[in-house]
Design a protein around this nucleic acid. Structure first.
Lengths: 193, 193, 193, 193
DNA sequence: TATGAATGAGGGTTCATTCAT
DNA sequence: CATGAATGAACCCTCATTCAT
């Protein structure tokens, strides 16, 4: 048996398997309603094994979220280096779409567990969400934007998220969904292709 | 019993006080993270007293949500009796805005506790939200709408909700917020004043 | 059945029964080695019942210790009001003997669980013991005593404690034990009858 | 392997380093409250490594205690060969002082963890302490001593221990402490220099 | 109306210990 | 010599809920 094959079979990375199962359950039933016992049973390991890989239940969800928020933060950082043109706005929205679509399950999980995720210790207040939202809005608008522009940008972002979440399983063609969603978002922010 | 006597009794309507405190805590910390002990302590009664007024914890949250969902359902029912004109679409959006703005805390609570609320017993799956969303979309669109129209309607609704939730505390003038939000929503659904 | 009888029988004060069983087990096996399950089982109640009466395991031991340390503190306070005469020293030692003899089991428990009791939260360091010891020494000596006098006082106190702990079950006659122990202690501190 | 090479190896004697760290932690926080994880972390090795050197947690503490109790047992054995004279009593006390002073940390650890140490397996009951205490008392007294003499001997021993533990860090001069403590002990047992 | 006392189930977490490598 | 990964048992604690009074 080749080395590669062996690696592929030998229960590749318990840590990742935990993340995967946890993500699924958190998204489906909620963070609080999902017990570590349940996660462990699905993986056919003991609860204690989870603690070898993560130092707490919170730590599991944090590891999931960090990656996602990291991508958002990177996008914001990149956006800040760009001029505020219709084309760059479009690119921001396109990239945001890619992130949300890519991290679909994580996003759903976050959406379903806002209360739990917000009290994660990290930040004193429920700013994890708002903070990112505001940052994204700011790269989609001129400095010191009027309420109207802020709202349009926020709604554009929301439309991307909503499109992915509510319609991902209804659109016949993912490409069409993407096109439609982005078209709406472009219209709201005056972004051009 | 005279009105005066009633007032003299300290805090007469315990049931409503429970709802009020519960709503606040559920919205703030999440349904699962809020224990009956906590609610009882805030009200300075015993846990057992809560069971005199509600038959379970679920029952408390249900009582909160029912009213809100009832209003939505009424709106949908009303919408179904109307012709699909730009003016009626506008009216639907206006009424939706009123509901969301009026039940602000309940809405926030729902938003923060989707996972918990979805597993409330009523329905087997997370259909409480999607169901209403779909119903509202359907009164905002022609029968059998293309994906594009569905999405625009959905985003219009989302923009109303988001506007209320994220910007309620930032807009100087509530009336201005309402006008702006509805303007966006009208644009998305081709609704006319 | 008379009211008094009923009170006497009807499981008089679960709270006190918990304290009593806990004390016995803590003294016998040690605080850390005694689980709440064990205590609950002996009382034929559930673990949760313990939490109705005490807010934590620590709280149980604290409730036990507080009474004992309270008596010591009272003795110190009283001692401070007295002139430093041989007769008053004798009285302090006599009262100390009474406390130790009276709270025999608590004292044994403390003796056996110094490590656990010292990390009780209350004080940052293991000062619960030393603090009292020093206070007692100070009422048995002149102000600013030389090392020699301090030591004699400390040893006198220790002899009282040791006498009670190690010899309580060997002396044929408690009164004789008390007399002997106090005689030694008087000799060490120059206390007179 | 040359001496130089051996020294070049970082921290050769792991076994002794384990004992040293364990002793410190057991004395400070207590045996039960000190986990193997903690010990391992301080030494920057894994828990499993501890099991290479000791076959259990108990084994660590046993290795610490054995040496100390061994010295006491030797002292008792020696004492038994001596005539019961004031001079030999003095010598016993002197040697006891040396042991306690020498094994200061071990003694403190024992003192703080009586409950844990007593349930070490060896003996069914808390006899490790009492047994030694009784043996020492017996070499300090005539055969079949009256209660009074027993108590004086016991208190003498206790004064040595207490002196070391409570006053070691307060006396300016160790030699003076030793002299004072032994003076008290001699007085109690009628031992002469 | 409400309380005091209790329960049963389950939660997350930690521990000493093992064993193949 | 030592580690990485895992186990099984137990732990303290909290929860929603009940019921006699």
């Amino acid at each position: 048996m080749s080395e590669a094959t062996k690696v592929a079979q030998a229960r590749p990375d318990t840590r990742e398997r935990i993340q995967s199962v946890a993500l699924e359950l958190f998204a489906e039933q909620g963070y609080d309603k999902t017990s570590l016992r349940e996660i462990a049973e699905r993986l056919d390991v003991t609860k204690a094994a989870l603690y070898y890989h993560f130092k707490s239940k919170e730590d599991i969800v944090t590891s999931l979220v960090e990656d996602y928020f990291g991508q958002i933060d990177q996008l914001v950082a990149w956006g800040r280096t760009q001029p505020r043109t219709p084309a760059s706005r479009a690119e921001v929205l396109r990239r945001y779409y890619a992130i949300v679509a890519g991290a679909g399950e994580v996003f759903r999980m976050l959406q379903h567990n806002q209360a739990s995720v917000n009290s994660l210790a990290h930040k004193n207040r429920s700013e994890l969400f708002r903070e990112r939202m505001d940052a994204l809005v700011s790269v989609l608008t001129e400095p010191d934007p009027p309420l109207d522009s802020q709202l349009r940008a926020a709604v554009a972002l929301a439309s991307v998220s909503f499109g992915c979440m509510f319609y991902a399983d209804r659109a016949e063609d993912p490409a069409q969904l993407q096109a439609t969603v982005l078209d709406i978002a472009f219209g709201l922010t005056g972004a051009g292709p």
